[in-house]
Design a protein around this nucleic acid. Structure first.
Lengths: 195, 195, 195, 195
DNA sequence: AATGAATGAGTTTTCATTCAT
DNA sequence: TATGAATGAAAACTCATTCAT
């Protein structure tokens, strides 16, 4: 059935995420992904045409989802502050929901520009974030003197660096710490460091 | 002479930076580095034991320099705000000073954690930035309620993301834009997005 | 099928023996082995993990076989003299049965000690030969005043040197000559050179 | 001075023997020989044209010496038995006199045929040994029914195998054991194994 | 004589991908 | 769908040798 097939495909993809998270994309062999999924060598190629396609699929699906969520947030009927808080929560909570996936995304970020032709969901998500900022400025909720694009990039960069710290074990990531981090980062970005 | 040797080594390292910036570390072949430097294949191995060692050296030297600068800033007799502004300037101006080097650093960030055992200058630089923040809090110049480490990571992340945007041509990077970006990011991080 | 696989493996091993016999292990390239076997480059690595493993397998299998034969001889119900004669026949007749294999073994003997951890069949075969001598001494068939281990080493050394002479074309190896050599060496070792 | 030069050359050669004995010819690098001799890279090439030439020189000089000794023995005014005993002593005592040199010779025997064009002292030494046997047969001191060449090869083979056992630590080689081995091997080869 | 930087051909090994079954 | 044997391009690295100083 298609269901069976979908499940197989999903197993392989999850296996790829685990393997990539463990060793990084480049050091991972297709055979290891197959072994992790408990399937034969060639089956990976049956479902995914190539090794790179595995990574691309991981990026595409994740960012598609991300885009969807950011758009929902964008369309939600709240203040810009709340929206930004929601975006931060979305990004940072991903670490606890699916650390392996986040690990792959963080480790392979630099590959995304190469995949970006294909994965333009990434650009769209960034654009949505930018619109949130811009709208906030129009509404008078956010400072109008900052470039919205730049601000949204800085905003996302701050979040991603926190994820990076967690992924590489250089920032504490227990439940309390992550919850606090979320509050703090948002507070920092909204209110600034100044006393 | 040693001078000759140092020069040779430097030529090869610069060639590596150019090649890595152009094609990325993984797609770059050692032979291409040699050709770019105008030297024979084996000479790369004479000075650097391996391809990876080239990258490691690039990271190590850059971060060593970075660390030195951040420490200078840390010890400078100014407000924390000025110090943070200086750090931001240091990071962001690197793009105009040496775009190829920044390109390599940005593209291969995710390799640095793997190199981090060796390149602990990175950790030291982060620690120095953290101390700047902590000192600012003690002095009452910066908000005391934010975790200094987290804040410094977020701060650096915001800067790095801007660099990333420039490296991948997704943010405008003409002289005016970069100068303005510098002002804005600092303003954003110090004063926040809130209106 | 496994049969197919075994056959492939065997073809590659025989090809390796031919190539190694022709040019020596060190001058032989893995690609030449593949070409000789009529298979692709990587298939050699599919069946054998490395070039050295090819040689090790050759040694191991040959000496396993050798050990088996020597043990049969040891357990045979004849005089020690007959047993030693049989061992000599076994060793020397190998040259006519499989000159290429003998060529490899003789040329690469000095590698065997390095492989000896793995190929302890060699040590076992030597031990069996030593037991034959020791038993002969106990039975009063052989001189009791010689150290059995030393005698068995000298015995084997004499045989191997004859093989070496044949391999390098420095001793005549036509059928008659080899047959006579067998008689003579045994006679020399049993009765001595003295008139 | 020439004396100085000779000394240098000798130092390098001895260094090569040590290094080759330690790791085998193939795994030894010219640089290691230079380092062991305490001289610069290129000086090895100044005195010896190539890596192989080092080995060749080792073989050539040793066998030249060996040839000289065997010829002396051949011309000595004693029985064939005494002459063979002397040859055995010559070969086996080499182990205690210069174990590193013997190690190289034993490990690289199989290279000698390739060097044999150059090093025909080896063939000459074998020929001298053969003449000793043949003369003994003419004199009625040794059995006339054995082929002299074959017998001399077997004789030498027995000796070399003992050396091999010592080199690879598989036969006891303390002073007493080596002295006894010498007696035994000669006794074995002259009188045979038979009771 | 002595140095060691410079050369670059040569080789093993890896591994993504294909394809017959 | 599923398997895993077969393919072979690709690349890092080694190291004997040369040569300018």
């Amino acid at each position: 059935m298609q269901t069976r097939a979908r499940q197989r495909e999903h197993e392989i993809l999850r296996a790829a995420i685990r393997v990539f998270a463990r060793q990084g994309y480049h050091k991972s062999k297709v055979g290891e992904v197959a072994a992790e999924a408990g399937v034969a060598y060639g089956l990976v190629y049956h479902y995914f045409g190539s090794k790179e396609s595995l990574l691309e699929t991981i990026f595409r699906r994740t960012w598609k989802q991300m885009l969807r969520f950011v758009q929902e947030i964008e369309e939600s009927d709240t203040t810009s502050q709340e929206q930004l808080r929601a975006v931060a929560g979305l990004v940072l909570q991903a670490w606890r929901l699916d650390p392996e996936l986040v690990g792959v995304l963080v480790r392979e970020v630099t590959r995304s520009p190469q995949l970006q032709n294909e994965v333009d969901e990434i650009a769209h998500a960034f654009a949505a974030l930018e619109r949130i900022v811009a709208r906030g400025q129009e509404r008078g909720e956010l400072r109008p003197d900052l470039d919205a694009r730049l601000a949204s990039w800085a905003f996302y960069g701050a979040l991603e660096e926190i994820l990076t710290g967690w992924v590489f074990g250089r920032l504490p990531d227990d439940e309390e710490a992550t919850a606090r981090a979320e509050q703090m980062v948002v507070s920092l970005l909204l209110d600034g460091l100044n006393a």
